[in-house]
Design a binder for these strands. Structure first.
Lengths: 122, 122
DNA sequence: CGGAATCCCTGCCGATACTG
DNA sequence: CAGTATCGGCAGGGATTCCG
């Protein structure tokens, strides 16, 4: 099966990129992976992800939890405290993302240089 | 530098995902990588990327060319024929994407299963 | 035939405000 | 403190049309 992947409407890579392409997903996975196997509270995550809005963090975590990539643990206290950690599945996703990070850090300057040549005036 | 990556506004990974996350970028890179070092005409690309619209293919290729990931060769004939091929830079991007594809093909079923459990009713 | 420009719609994401 | 609901701005991307 060489053409059964990206070309299907339900192509796995397409589906993955739709999720990982989200603005905060990659960052959340990285932060949680760095903390692994420890947990991080909501506020702690917010602190470690500068610029994320309250809403988007909650939404991102909810999606990731729904996908089985992160585990949610609720402490039934007042005020409520919720902790997040990567599942094994979520942790396994960090490797491919790390490869992507590595490529980006190595080559994005080159890409930026090309862009500058291609569109000098703007 | 451990925190200098995703957290910067100009974080390379963020920038990369903004591009690769585009609906047709990953597919185009894969198709061109499979054809490498051969070239593909516009029509040929359109054929190999089912579902892509005329406009989005042109736009995707223009962006990739502007980023220095693909090379454009125009045959000055009537009607005009344009051929595309990956640059070495673009070819190097295929490796990280291949890793992502591999992860997706291995684990996306698992992700889908979790989603089904998380939201059985819709 | 390749591609650029236009129109429109949809979904993401941010800000704000409210519940427990 | 954690989470949700609502609103609005904005960009991605699809269909169509016109130019070379």
């Amino acid at each position: 099966m060489t053409r059964g992947d990206i070309f299907d409407p339900a192509c796995p890579t397409r589906l993955l990129l739709d999720r990982v392409g989200g603005k905060w997903v990659a960052m959340a996975v990285k932060v949680l992976a760095e903390a692994h196997p420890g947990e991080l509270g909501f506020a702690e995550l917010e602190r470690r992800m500068p610029g994320v809005s309250h809403k988007m963090l909650a939404q991102t975590l909810r999606t990731l939890a729904g996908d089985g990539l992160v585990m949610r643990r609720v402490e039934p206290v007042i005020p409520p405290r919720v902790h997040y950690r990567l599942t094994p599945l979520g942790l396994s996703l960090d490797a491919p993302l790390a490869v992507l990070r590595e490529w980006a850090e190595t080559h994005m300057a080159e890409v930026a240089a090309h862009r500058r040549i291609a569109s000098p005036a703007e």
